[in-house]
């Protein structure tokens, strides 16, 4: 069964998993978001949706290393910062070519991932978490001390990234669709990646690194490559974020941001394709709605985390799988070829 699903392009409808259905519907709604917010006269929610999509891309990139690769990076906000400043600093010198800015965001993030990853990946477990966080904070304090670019006052971007042709980021709908398309492309890239030979090497290294080395894999090199890809993708999301907020400040890359990203991934379901998106949606949903009623919205978020960690294995994605198991009256163990499998040891 699993085999069929992975080789033929369109599996029989009965075999399409609930999570896939759910995501198709959710993505469809998001594809229509500009129309929906226009009809209902709530443009504010388009901006919420844009932020959600951008942070999802960052969460998707973190999930690549955390969920599939077992590398618990606590410094991913640094890549968002590098990507954002790769838009902001050129703007400061009147360079607003979008290709240049986004290219710079990707290259700088990838390089930073290469250098710091080469060091971090020599450590394991808690040490890896701490050292990634340390590098993240180094980026934070570096931007904090750059007086030329606003330091802790931040840097306003009056002119967004310029692209030739019809793409205009000042148009909120266009910006939204660029972000949306970027998310779809990111999801597709991760999907192909984790099921490729490279992906199998990464997932194997997560499950049993000693065994991987014994059968002939240089796990360090594969992990580093994975880390670089993830960093580049996260940097890209940072460049989008800069265009969305029109404003940069070191505060957006503080270590608590890295923690939020981790929350999004874990709450959505680590090592699942759509989990990071779902987790981001819940996080921003809480932020947007609950914050209207109480300043202690994070308290309720904490309660939710406790519930999810204690009772639902695999986050929201796991919850949907559970529902599927009940409805279809058979235990849903993910087909091994799909990413959902790599959820835990």
């Amino acid at each position: 069964m699993a085999r069929k699903a992975s080789t033929s392009l369109i599996p029989p409808l009965g075999e399409i998993r609930f999570t896939t259905w759910f995501m198709l519907i959710v993505l469809l709604i998001f594809a229509l978001a500009p129309v929906l917010t226009e009809i209902t006269g709530t443009p504010f929610y388009l901006s919420v949706a844009t932020r959600l999509i951008i942070l999802s891309i960052a969460a998707v990139s973190l999930n690549l290393v955390l969920g599939y690769g077992g590398m618990v990076s606590f410094g991913h906000a640094a890549f968002i910062g590098l990507g954002a400043y790769a838009v902001g600093i050129p703007f400061y010198y009147d360079i607003t070519n979008g290709f240049l800015q986004f290219g710079l965001a990707i290259v700088v993030s990838a390089l930073f991932a290469l250098v710091t990853g080469a060091i971090c990946l020599r450590t394991k477990g808690v040490y890896f978490i701490m050292i990634t966080m340390a590098f993240g904070q180094m980026v934070y304090f570096t931007f904090l001390s750059l007086n030329e670019y606003g330091a802790d006052d931040g840097l306003s971007i009056y002119k967004l990234s310029q692209f030739p042709g019809p793409i205009d980021f000042t148009n909120k709908v266009q910006l939204y669709y660029v972000c949306f398309a970027s998310l779809i492309v990111s999801l597709f890239i991760v999907h192909r990646l984790v099921n490729s030979r490279f992906g199998m090497a990464i997932r194997g290294a997560k499950g049993n690194e000693e065994r991987m080395r014994a059968i002939g894999f240089n796990t360090y090199a594969y992990r580093l490559t994975c880390y670089v890809i993830s960093g580049a993708m996260c940097g890209f999301s940072g460049a989008l974020l800069a265009n969305f907020t029109n404003f940069l400040s070191p505060e957006m890359i503080d270590w608590t941001r890295s923690g939020e990203l981790m929350f999004m991934v874990i709450f959505g379901g680590t090592g699942t394709l759509f989990g990071p998106f779902l987790g981001t949606a819940v996080f921003l949903g809480f932020y947007t709605f609950l914050a209207q009623f109480t300043t202690y919205w994070q308290l309720w978020l904490g309660v939710l985390i406790l519930i999810s960690v204690l009772f639902v294995k695999g986050g929201i994605n796991g919850l949907i799988d559970k529902i599927e198991g009940v409805v279809r009256k058979r235990p849903v163990s993910a087909p091994a070829a799909t990413p959902a499998e790599a959820k835990d040891e």
Partner: peptide, 14 residues
């Protein structure tokens, strides 16, 4: 592991 490098990012391994 013994069929050359695994820097093949696109084609499914399954």
């Amino acid at each position: 592991a013994h069929r050359g490098h695994s820097y093949r990012f696109w084609r499914p391994a399954a």
